[in-house]
């Protein structure tokens, strides 16, 4: 069964080791929830994993990485820039094709913001921006997802719906979450990070919220 082996992951800031060295394996089909208190190194780990995968995964970083001056449509479309030729992409900047418009509008409808299609990203609220970044990750249709707190600015029902969408569409996912309940509900495996090391690694079904709270 295919999957990813991550060996000897390390990261340092100003000469101080913040991650690792740590190694683990992610199997295809697993949905991993990364938990741990803030500053434990989750974001750094997500970034490391993205680099290890040579960018061959959809990423939702904490900063979202939206192009503020571009409308929502183009921010989402950027997920598939590799699928088209340069001319197609350039024309799309000026006048998008119907096919792409329909696809992206459908995606936004599922995320509850279809009316924002032509609004520049700069003019959106935090929650809306987060959904645009998620839409971009979904639109990219990579098999693997790396996401760093993708639902931090979403309210309850929407957060549930987004997590469901993410775990449904991506074969494999690694999602950093501070909401333990959410992690237990949507992930199949939980990895707990403490001081840059793996402090916990078990199937979600074997854990309760209390087991995880020792990390905080």
């Amino acid at each position: 069964m295919s999957g990813f082996d991550f060996n000897g992951l390390t990261a340092s800031f100003d000469g101080e080791r913040v991650i690792g060295p740590l190694s683990f394996r992610i199997n295809e089909g697993e949905h991993v929830g990364l938990v741990g208190k803030s500053g434990a190194g989750k974001s750094t780990l997500i970034r490391l994993l993205y680099d290890r995968l040579d960018g061959k995964a959809s990423l939702v970083p904490q900063g979202l990485g939206l192009v503020n001056a571009l409308p929502v449509f183009h921010n989402v479309f950027m997920g598939q820039l590799d699928q088209h030729g340069t001319w197609y992409n350039t024309l799309t900047l000026i006048r998008p094709f119907r096919r792409d418009k329909d696809a992206i509008r459908a995606l936004l409808t599922e995320l509850g913001i279809p009316e924002k299609l032509w609004i520049p990203a700069a003019a959106l609220s935090g929650g809306q921006r987060q959904r645009v970044a998620i839409a971009r990750a979904l639109y990219r249709q990579a098999p693997t997802l790396l996401a760093d707190e993708p639902i931090s600015a979403l309210d309850g029902p929407m957060a549930q719906q987004v997590m469901t969408m993410l775990t449904n569409q991506f074969t494999t996912s690694i999602v950093a979450l501070h909401d333990v309940e959410m992690a237990l509900a949507h992930c199949t495996r939980i990895i707990g990070i403490q001081d840059g090391q793996i402090a916990l690694d078990q199937p979600a079904s074997e854990l309760t919220a209390a087991d995880i709270s020792v990390l905080y």
């Binding site: 970083p61 192009v67 001056a69 571009l70 820039l81 590799d82 340069t86």
Partner: peptide, 28 residues
């Protein structure tokens, strides 16, 4: 902001990357 450029799928042509991820934020 270099982040949008880093998030582009590998294989994106450099022209498209430039037009989408770089120019719009600098345009104004």
């Amino acid at each position: 902001d270099p982040e949008p450029g880093r998030l582009l799928p590998p294989g994106t042509s450099s022209i498209a990357a430039f037009l989408y991820a770089r120019i719009p934020d600098c345009w104004v």
